[in-house]
Protein backbone atom coordinates (compact mmCIF):
# COMPACT_ATOMS: atom_id res chain seq x y z
CA UNK A 1 0.00 0.00 0.00
CA UNK A 2 1.20 3.46 -0.84
CA UNK A 3 0.94 6.35 1.54
CA UNK A 4 -2.14 8.25 0.44
CA UNK A 5 -2.71 11.63 1.92
CA UNK A 6 -6.36 10.85 2.60
CA UNK A 7 -7.99 9.43 4.55
CA UNK A 8 -6.17 10.44 7.65
CA UNK A 9 -6.87 11.63 11.15
CA UNK A 10 -5.47 14.66 12.84
CA UNK A 11 -5.23 15.13 16.59
CA UNK A 12 -5.08 18.56 18.14
CA UNK A 13 -2.36 17.88 20.66
CA UNK A 14 -3.35 20.80 22.91
CA UNK A 15 -7.04 19.93 23.13
CA UNK A 16 -6.50 16.21 23.54
CA UNK A 17 -6.93 15.05 27.15
CA UNK A 18 -5.14 11.79 26.56
CA UNK A 19 -8.07 9.55 27.45
CA UNK A 20 -6.96 6.90 24.97
CA UNK A 21 -10.44 6.10 23.67
CA UNK A 22 -9.53 6.86 20.06
CA UNK A 23 -6.46 4.65 20.30
CA UNK A 24 -8.55 1.77 21.61
CA UNK A 25 -11.19 2.31 18.94
CA UNK A 26 -8.91 2.45 15.93
CA UNK A 27 -9.20 -0.80 13.95
CA UNK A 28 -5.97 -0.06 12.08
CA UNK A 29 -3.94 0.69 15.19
CA UNK A 30 -2.61 3.83 13.61
CA UNK A 31 -3.20 6.05 16.65
CA UNK A 32 -0.73 5.93 19.50
CA UNK A 33 -0.12 7.65 22.79
CA UNK A 34 2.59 10.23 22.38
CA UNK A 35 5.54 10.01 24.73
CA UNK A 36 5.37 13.81 24.82
CA UNK A 37 3.17 15.81 27.18
CA UNK A 38 1.03 18.77 26.14
CA UNK A 39 0.86 21.95 28.20
CA UNK A 40 -1.88 20.43 30.39
CA UNK A 41 0.29 17.45 31.14
CA UNK A 42 -1.52 14.92 29.01
CA UNK A 43 0.12 12.32 26.81
CA UNK A 44 -1.90 13.24 23.75
CA UNK A 45 -2.77 10.83 20.96
CA UNK A 46 -0.90 10.89 17.69
CA UNK A 47 -1.57 9.59 14.21
CA UNK A 48 1.35 7.48 13.10
CA UNK A 49 1.19 9.01 9.64
CA UNK A 50 -0.23 6.23 7.54
CA UNK A 51 -2.74 3.42 7.46
CA UNK A 52 -5.92 5.30 8.31
CA UNK A 53 -8.97 3.94 6.50
CA UNK A 54 -11.28 6.80 7.46
CA UNK A 55 -13.69 4.72 9.49
CA UNK A 56 -14.41 7.64 11.85
CA UNK A 57 -14.23 5.53 15.00
CA UNK A 58 -11.73 7.81 16.62
CA UNK A 59 -13.84 10.89 15.93
CA UNK A 60 -16.99 9.44 17.44
CA UNK A 61 -15.20 7.88 20.41
CA UNK A 62 -13.49 11.14 21.26
CA UNK A 63 -15.46 13.09 23.88
CA UNK A 64 -13.75 16.37 23.07
CA UNK A 65 -15.53 18.32 20.30
CA UNK A 66 -12.42 19.69 18.72
CA UNK A 67 -9.57 17.34 19.64
CA UNK A 68 -9.65 15.13 16.60
CA UNK A 69 -10.70 15.44 13.02
CA UNK A 70 -10.80 12.89 10.24
CA UNK A 71 -10.34 13.56 6.53
CA UNK A 72 -12.48 10.93 4.86
CA UNK A 73 -11.69 8.92 1.74
CA UNK A 74 -13.55 11.28 -0.52
CA UNK A 75 -11.90 14.38 0.88
CA UNK A 76 -10.60 16.59 -1.91
CA UNK A 77 -8.57 19.60 -0.78
CA UNK A 78 -9.20 21.28 -4.15
CA UNK A 79 -12.94 21.28 -3.54
CA UNK A 80 -12.81 22.55 0.04
CA UNK A 81 -12.94 26.27 0.49
Amino acid sequence: MTDPKYPRSEVNSEKCKGCGLCIAACPMHVLVESPKLNSKGYHFAEYVGKGCVGCGNCFYNCPEPDAILVYLKNYDPEKEV
Binding site: K17, C19, Y60, C62, P63, E64, P65, D66
Partner: peptide, 20 residues
Protein backbone atom coordinates in the same frame (compact mmCIF):
# COMPACT_ATOMS: atom_id res chain seq x y z
CA UNK B 1 -12.73 28.60 26.23
CA UNK B 2 -11.78 26.11 23.53
CA UNK B 3 -12.29 22.82 25.35
CA UNK B 4 -14.90 21.20 27.55
CA UNK B 5 -14.89 20.94 31.32
CA UNK B 6 -15.42 17.19 31.20
CA UNK B 7 -12.87 14.72 32.56
CA UNK B 8 -10.78 12.80 30.04
CA UNK B 9 -12.81 10.01 28.48
CA UNK B 10 -16.17 11.08 29.90
CA UNK B 11 -19.21 9.75 28.04
CA UNK B 12 -20.99 13.10 28.28
CA UNK B 13 -18.64 14.49 25.63
CA UNK B 14 -19.37 11.64 23.24
CA UNK B 15 -23.12 12.11 23.51
CA UNK B 16 -22.71 15.88 23.18
CA UNK B 17 -20.91 15.38 19.91
CA UNK B 18 -23.62 13.11 18.53
CA UNK B 19 -26.33 15.64 19.43
CA UNK B 20 -24.42 18.58 18.03
Amino acid sequence: KDRTHYCPGCGHGILHKLIA
